[in-house]
């Protein structure tokens, strides 16, 4: 089994190269990019500095020589695979480059957003696992009861409506009409002047609505997965065996059916390492939170390729490692699974 996981870890390398080559080539082919942005900026400056040049003289603001120097600066003068090689060599040395927009190191830009991603990611995880698993169990044990039907309706409505729409609805109702919660952001204006306990309360107060928006969408899948697998297992022969040997039904559920029901949930558990870079840019946009989702979205829109690629490096590595961790989790909960 160790050999299997070593092999899986080694397979990360070609997969990672494949992902990054693909995105790198795409960044070269799509229109836009730092040079075009600089040209646009230069043209704007030109026109705002004086109409002296005149509208008729709407020509290229930079000389060919300047453009060539810019291309050399950003590495666009070389063939795409050569630039990729240079970029990769820097990445391997731990250097993700600098943003073409803010001229900040990409590492620092990502690191600044990580705490926000972790904060919402971990809270969402806790809510999803902490509520969905017990809720799924309760629904399975009370199948077709009023409780089961009501919660199903709530859970599926949450699933059907996108998280950011729920966010907008919550904001409109609870922050605008009834002003119970703040309109956005993570802290109040006077946050620095508050004592610690008030600061904590302030952050939590700002957290409620975005967290609800995050959690609403993940609820249905996890709850129904838990409910349905548990119901399958409740009908399984070995649960009947457990009851037949004298175990009270509830103990048979928790000792025998539950662990078997966790197997499907374990198949995606390892991917939770991706919380480091999690965050939906739509929800972040609605609630005005400066998280990873927004950073990724803006870097794509603004063609800030070092940031795009930097986020890609981090998230694809986490994703690949997460898959292996998930396999490991399955092997831990299910002794029948042995990887050769």
């Amino acid at each position: 089994m160790t050999a299997y996981f070593i092999r899986r870890l080694l397979l990360i390398i070609p997969t990672f190269l494949g992902i990054t080559v693909m995105v790198f080539v795409i960044t070269r082919m799509v229109p836009g990019g730092p040079i075009e942005r600089i040209i646009v900026q230069a043209r704007q400056m030109q026109s705002s500095l004086g109409m002296a040049a005149g509208a008729a003289e709407q020509r290229q603001p930079l000389s060919d020589d300047q453009i060539a120097r810019l291309k050399a600066y950003y590495g666009f003068d070389k063939p795409v695979l050569v630039s990729y090689g240079q970029w990769l060599a820097k990445v391997l040395r731990g250097d993700l480059g600098t943003s073409t927009r803010y001229y900040d190191p990409v590492w620092r830009m990502i690191a600044e957003r990580v705490p926000i991603s972790l904060y919402f990611g971990i809270l969402t995880l806790l809510m999803v696992y902490g509520v969905c698993i017990p809720l799924g169990i309760a629904k399975a044990l009370r199948h077709k009861s009023g409780f089961d039907n009501t919660t199903s309706v709530v859970v599926f409505v949450g699933y059907a409506v996108p998280g950011w729409v729920i966010g907008v609805l919550l904001l409109t109702l609870l922050a605008s009409v009834w002003e119970v919660f703040p309109l956005g952001g993570l802290t109040s204006d006077n946050f620095p002047d508050m004592p610690l306990d008030e600061q904590i309360m302030d952050i939590l107060w700002h957290t409620v609505l975005p967290l609800t928006a995050y959690v609403a969408g993940s609820f249905a899948v996890m709850t129904m997965l838990m409910k349905n697998t548990l119901m399958d297992n409740l009908a399984a022969d070995y649960v009947r065996t457990a009851v037949a040997k004298g175990l009270p039904f509830r103990r048979a559920v928790f000792r025998h059916a539950l662990r078997n029901s966790l197997i499907p949930i374990a198949t995606s558990f390892g991917n939770n390492v991706s919380v480091v870079v999690s965050g939906s840019f739509l929800i972040e946009k609605v609630f005005n939170i400066n998280g990873m989702g927004l950073l990724g979205y803006e870097s794509v829109v603004e063609r800030d390729y070092p940031v795009v690629l930097g986020i890609l490096v981090v998230s694809s590595l986490l994703f690949l490692v997460g898959n292996i961790l998930s396999d490991l989790c399955v092997a831990v909960v299910d002794p029948r699974v042995r990887f050769e």
């Binding site: 399984a236 040997k245 004298g246 025998h256």
Partner: peptide
């Protein structure tokens, strides 16, 4: 019932493949 099952009357089933818990 739990005091009856197993202690006074025990039962074995047709499918030994599925009657045992696979993860214990």
């Amino acid at each position: 019932l739990p005091g009856l099952r197993g202690r006074r009357i025990a039962m074995i089933f047709q499918e030994p493949m599925t009657a045992l818990n696979p993860v214990h």
